[in-house]
Amino acid sequence: MSTKSAILVGVGGQGAILTAKVLVNGLMKAGYDVKMSEVHGMSQRGGSVSTQVHWGDKVYSPVIGHGAADLLVAFEKMEAVRYAPFLKSDGVAVINDYALPSATIAAGLAEYPEGCLEAMQANYRCFTLNAAEIAAGLGSPKCMNIVLFGAMTRALHFGEIDWESVIRETVPQKFVELNLAAFRAGRDAVKE
């Protein structure tokens, strides 16, 4: 199999890295060669963050540039626009219909841009959902990342990976049921 690439983007603290770990654990179980890269450092302080995951028979580069991702998972919709150039023209985007103003916007120095979601939908095959609302409905805003993960498994063909057992093995015991509920809710919520 030729190498596939996913890029998970959001804002520091949204849980993109944990989501990438669930994805990677599933891919490893399925026997793929896997590479993953994280951006660390200053991005932890409320900045824009991205994690890349690559899998296939043999993966060389741990990072990709523009026009090379099969899948973009955006935890925040302005971040979807920021990282859209990484998508292949026929790539798929999974977008959380959720806005988090940046410090520049909060300070009144800029306006949050209108039409992020619409621009993505006009240019790419998109799966959108309000994962924040779904997570709140499940009683824990923090499981938003696994809601998005559930949606993501609908967007790309991952072969025969049993994601529910991967989640059981990856998240702490006391959060298993919550995360399974989040996974199922996300998987069932996406509309194309």
Binding site: R45, G46, G67, M78, V81, P85, T104, G115, C116, A119
Partner: peptide, 29 residues
């Protein structure tokens, strides 16, 4: 990265689309 290297070596530009929406910077704070 592979795409940048390919462009520098062989002039193959990565294909991207113009979205018409500009994201606002999100600096660390």
């Amino acid at each position: 990265n592979p795409q940048r290297l390919r462009e520098l070596l062989f002039g193959v530009k990565p294909e991207t689309k113009a979205l018409g929406v500009a994201p606002v910077s999100r600096p660390p704070t």
